[in-house]
Design a protein around this nucleic acid. Structure first.
Lengths: 326, 326
DNA sequence: GTGAAAGCGCTAACAT
DNA sequence: ATGTTAGCGCTTTCAC
């Protein structure tokens, strides 16, 4: 049972009294071999617990392609939906996916450098600063998702503007006048955009900051607002997660949704259909994001596109999904 | 921009006028090289867009280890929590994770056979029949999660009994007399166990079958029961997903939870804390499951354990987590 | 149908 | 500090 030297094709060849090529033929179900020797070789291989080394094989075959998917935390429901879509897009193109999250990482730069050595392209939420990225990803096709302006790599940008405009119209139509933006940080782009859009219609948005991106933080923050007695008739949350937190707080305060307060999330996760009332949300189509990202990465890898610049930026547009909560 | 022959270490060596070994030294930040040549080589490498082949490297270094994680559908929140935990357990041991789901797969046997060629061990929910498994995984360390009796591989069994006993005591204590088991299929083990446990206390359990493992199916099934006017005071769902569906149906029917009907889920997903009321559930510790599974797989790979038999079966125990819904 | 030779791209070990 | 040699485990010619 102790692990010795790895069993190689040569061991099998010797044990079976044939050449290594014959073993290859047997293992890979190739044609030019008699049934007799094939089964004999297979038998020996099994006895020896022989498993072909993927490294030797891939080195010569060179058709093995894998994308490294980097997400922050699979425990945040946004990332699994992305991961699922990326796996789908990748397998459709015959690529493998190796998964890395940054939440389990003590040293992001080192761990990503490790990942980089195992994959042909990287896709996802990389989350390093400019210099670190340049160092870690030198020479590798990378497609960042929603990286903000000035990415030095490929990028899939998420465009919230049209949906945001639509949302504001809807909110104003139904009489919203005291909306709150529930954001993880004061500077969050989504919050700023909401504020500006509503301001254009003469409506003030108060921003409430949760600090953390968690349901509990959102729950607590909204509970505070409610307790303060301040009027509000709508909440636009940073994402669906925070929106769910808002829902919880309002439910505890016995405030009707959407009757008295409308709640809107961001992302369009399936999570939004789990809760009650179901979440109205500014949704992104994850399969589109994944498909565009993988497509871009593959094209970069194939040398059909450069590794940076406008040619490798794409945009995917949010859309307003009206469900029950607003 | 068209992709030619791959740039190899030899190309860089020639272009820089040094030996391949020197290129290796430069690329890998090794010691025995002057700063001058190092930077010259690096410069040439960058110009040529040289990236070392991981296959050549891994073939000689032989320290690259990866676990194949097989899940059914990342869109089902159970699997991401598992995936997150497995990634954590794997990186802690210096292993990579390649992710495969079976929902995107047209031909499970073929796709898993592909996966098998890229990994050193397989962990997860494999979902093939006996013969297919034997064929696909011949000679590979495999750890199945919750495979049921008679697995031919390593296994992490999930033991629901203690928590189930505790749950029944609790339910009876609070006066439950007309419980319903909300299951995906009539034969589901969890349902059977619940029925038996309650029967031991003289309480009948009615089983309601959803067919599908989805919130909507559960919602519809429970709505039916409610509409039928039949009395019920508790629902034990097959998992947290179905429990959320039950919650939705009850909310629409304006039936108080836990006031009039208690609802209990299974798995202990974080999903259960998103909904309101928060879900009471028979929870499994995913990090424990993942850790045990990866540990087992690694030990099998290292030749410290056999590939099947009682030595490679472990058990992880559910526990009752009382939250708001029961 | 089978084997011998050559080589995939890289690094370890041993020169110099 | 740099180069040479050998070889990782496999498959692809190309003989026979």
């Amino acid at each position: 049972m102790t692990r010795g030297r790895r069993v190689t094709i040569t061991d099998v060849a010797e044990a079976a009294g044939v050449s290594r090529q014959t073993v290859t033929r047997a293992m890979n179900g190739m044609a030019e071999i008699s049934d007799a020797t094939r089964s004999r070789v297979l038998e020996v291989a099994r006895e020896l617990r022989y498993r072909p080394s993927r490294f030797g094989r891939d080195l010569v075959k060179r058709e093995q392609r894998t994308v490294g998917l980097v997400v922050h935390d699979l425990t945040n429901p946004y990332y699994p939906e992305l991961a699922s879509a990326v796996v789908g897009a990748a397998v459709a193109r015959g690529w493998n996916v190796v998964l890395a999250d940054t939440v389990h990482s003590r040293d992001r730069v080192a761990d990503l450098a490790d990942l980089v050595r195992q994959v042909d392209v990287v896709v996802g939420y990389v989350g390093l600063n400019r210099e670190e990225k340049a160092e870690v990803f030198a020479g590798l096709p990378v497609v960042e998702i929603d990286p903000g302006p000035g990415s030095a790599f490929g990028a899939v940008d998420l465009d919230e503007r049209p949906a945001m405009a639509e949302l504001c119209t809807h909110l104003l139509d139904v009489g919203v006048r005291r909306p709150v933006a529930l954001m993880t940080s004061a500077g969050a782009e989504r919050g700023v955009l909401f504020r500006e859009s509503m301001a254009a219609h003469g409506v003030d948005v108060r921003t409430v900051v949760t600090g953390q991106e968690s349901i509990d933080a959102a729950d607590a923050a909204v509970a505070d607002v409610v307790a303060s007695g301040e009027e509000l008739d709508a909440i636009l949350a940073f994402n669906d997660l925070l929106a769910c937190g808002a829902l919880k707080a309002l439910r505890h305060a016995r405030i009707e949704v959407p009757g008295r307060v409308r709640v809107v999330g961001f992302d369009g996760l399936s999570l939004g259909t789990v809760v009650s009332p179901e979440l109205t949300t500014l949704a992104i189509d994850m399969s589109e994001v994944a498909d565009v990202a993988v497509e871009l990465a593959v094209a970069m890898f194939d040398g059909e596109l450069p590794y940076s610049g406008d040619d490798v930026r794409r945009s995917v547009t949010h859309r307003l999904v009206l469900r029950e909560s607003a």
